[in-house]
């Protein structure tokens, strides 16, 4: 576990499965700071992959690149056979609306909209009628145990409730991949457990792949596989961690 060598090869499974999302040699600089240095990672359909690492190791930047929110300076991100880093913005938006779901630590819900409208938003943007969107969103809110809170706005909810609404919004379109960046970072341990249980249970039930960014070992324990990021690259330690799991 003390190895400091860096790997530019993807952290992959050995069963010959084809990844749904694969990043190779990602580099990204924010001004003078190099957030990613040749990071490579693979995500398989239906798995929960935890990306862990210290603060400033490039975890969030990796997620932003993988979700098509930030274009890497170097390297490639391939999702279902298409290069995300080369797709136009409109197509990336469509992917976020239909095939990706995103959950952050906080702040992703729109303060002006109720829990029901927030959850319905991706469906409304995709052209669904408001009635149909509300029906579908209501089912997801029920699934996450926040039925009855439909009329509340984010400012009126607890952190745990807001995060469960955010999860419902991320999953309402039936995405193939959910990106979760420290989804329990602002929650107490009980709320954290509720949110992670709901996420893991739903992901396994629906076969959704989850890329989970966390620095919390208890949260990472919900994952099927774990990779470590150190100084912007996937550390060789990750292989050892995977082997021991």
């Amino acid at each position: 576990m003390s190895s400091t060598s860096m790997s530019s090869t993807p952290m992959s499974r050995t069963d010959g499965a084809v990844p749904i999302l694969a990043a190779r040699g990602l580099s990204k600089a924010h001004g003078e700071t190099r957030a990613l240095r040749g990071a490579s990672v693979e995500l398989y359909a239906g798995e929960i992959l935890a990306v862990t690492g210290a603060s400033g190791s490039g975890k969030s930047t990796l997620l932003h690149c993988l979700a098509g929110m930030v274009r890497p300076d170097e390297g490639s991100v391939v999702y279902a056979g298409q290069r995300l880093d080369r797709l136009p913005e409109a197509r990336l938006s469509e992917l976020r609306r239909t095939e990706f779901g995103v959950v952050f630590q906080f702040g992703q819900l729109i303060p002006e909209l109720t829990a029901l409208d927030n959850t319905s938003l991706p469906l409304l943007l995709a052209g669904a009628s408001r009635k149909a969107a509300h029906e579908q969103a209501g089912e997801w809110l029920e699934r996450f145990g926040v039925r009855g809170q439909e009329g509340l706005r984010p400012g009126e909810m607890s952190g745990g409730q807001a995060q469960r609404v955010a999860l419902a919004r991320a999953l309402v379109t039936g995405p193939k991949v959910v990106f979760a960046d420290e989804p329990t970072g602002a929650l107490d341990s009980l709320a954290s457990e509720q949110v992670m249980t709901a996420l893991a249970h739903t992901a396994r039930e629906t076969g959704t792949a989850v890329l989970l960014i966390t620095h919390d070992a208890q949260v990472a324990a919900y994952a099927d596989r774990e990779v470590w990021l150190r100084d912007g690259a996937v550390s060789a330690d990750a292989v050892a961690l995977e082997a021991t799991r």
Partner: peptide
């Protein structure tokens, strides 16, 4: 937030 939900 709208962009995150998939708006162009």
């Amino acid at each position: 937030g709208l962009r995150l939900a998939g708006a162009t």
